[in-house]
Structure formats: structure tokens, C-alpha cells
Design a protein around this nucleic acid. Structure first.
Length: 153
DNA sequence: CGGGTTTGACCAGCGC
DNA sequence: GCGCTGGTCAAACCCG
């Protein structure tokens, strides 16, 4: 199995103060504004704040796009985004009633790097163990404790 | 046959 | 208002 090298958690919308990231397009504030403005009116079942609370962005260095995190995902879309030569892929958790989403996009500059965005919380236990994701989670939690650290990509 | 993927259409938000 | 862009839908397709 290929290894996933965890580079950094870019941002997370937790209760703690946002990460400062040396990467203009991914600030926590921007994420919040984006979600607020887009969905404030239309969000009936999915609560806006819930989403903001549970949005996590990781970067991993890996040959394969799909990070096996132990959950079962169903692809529901793919989109070519501006300023990137790689398409962004959209996934939903295929567990019934669990509408966690994730987006996966490979960097156009450094093709080794894959950016994975999780949105929402699983309402069910993980189905199988996933070492690589464990590793990421651990790294994520560690970084979350070091709140004032700045990251450089 | 049942589940997932592909892919173009559709839609909403935003800037001009 | 219009066009661009990103996110989602859904029909068709694929595969075990």
C-alpha cells in the first residue's frame, strides 16, 4: 500500500481560534463567509454552524487521490476548477442518513500533493481501520493544540 | 441486479 | 442583468 505523508491540516472550523495559514485562499474566515453567504437562507436540515464546526482540510503527499480513511464514499461529481489543471472530486458518505461530504483536489503546482476537505460529522462508527487516516487525525489533533503556530507550505 | 462512477445539465452566488 | 464559477443532480453507464 502506498504511504500517505501528512503535510499539514490547513484549516479547521472548530471552536478554537482559527489556524493562521500562510496560504491566502484558505483562511478560516473566508471559509466561514463562503458558507454563510451561500447557504444562510436555504439551510433547512443542514445547520450552517454545524457545517462550519466540522470542516477540516488536510494536505497529504500521495500518489493516489483517494485517501482511504475507513469510510465508504460515493462519488457524486467532478469539476474542473479555475487555476488548476486537475479536476476536483466530490464525495458523499454512502452510509444511509450520513451526509458527510468530502472534496479531493490535487495541486496543479505540486502534483504529489492532494488536498482533502471534510465537511460534516459521521453519525456512525468507522467501518474498517485506516492507518493512514489515523496518522492524519493524530497530526491534526496535535496541530490543533498548537494554536498559534503558523504553517508554511 | 445492486451498487458505484461518469458526465453533462442545472442552479445559485458573486462580481462586473 | 449577465456571464463566470463552483457545487449538486441524475441519467446513463459500468462492473462484480
Amino acid at each position: 500500500m502506498e504511504k500517505h505523508e501528512v503535510l499539514l491540516p490547513i484549516s479547521a472550523s472548530l471552536d478554537a481560534s482559527p489556524f493562521e495559514v500562510n496560504r491566502g485562499s484558505c483562511s478560516n474566515v473566508q471559509v466561514q463567509n463562503e458558507i454563510k453567504s451561500k447557504r444562510k437562507e436555504k439551510l433547512s436540515e443542514r445547520n450552517c454552524k454545524e457545517i462550519m464546526k466540522h470542516r477540516y482540510v488536510f494536505q497529504t503527499r500521495s500518489q493516489i487521490d483517494i485517501l482511504d480513511d475507513g469510510f465508504k464514499w460515493r462519488k457524486y461529481g467532478e469539476k474542473l476548477v479555475k487555476n488548476s489543471k486537475f479536476p476536483r472530486s466530490y464525495y458523499k458518505c454512502s452510509y444511509r442518513g450520513c451526509n458527510v461530504r468530502k472534496q479531493i483536489q490535487r495541486h496543479s503546482k505540486d502534483e504529489q500533493i492532494v488536498e482533502t476537505t471534510y465537511e460534516g460529522m459521521h453519525i456512525h462508527p468507522v467501518e474498517k481501520s485506516a492507518e493512514s487516516f489515523d496518522q492524519i487525525l493524530r497530526s491534526f489533533i496535535t496541530s490543533n493544540q498548537l494554536n498559534n503556530v503558523k504553517y508554511n507550505v
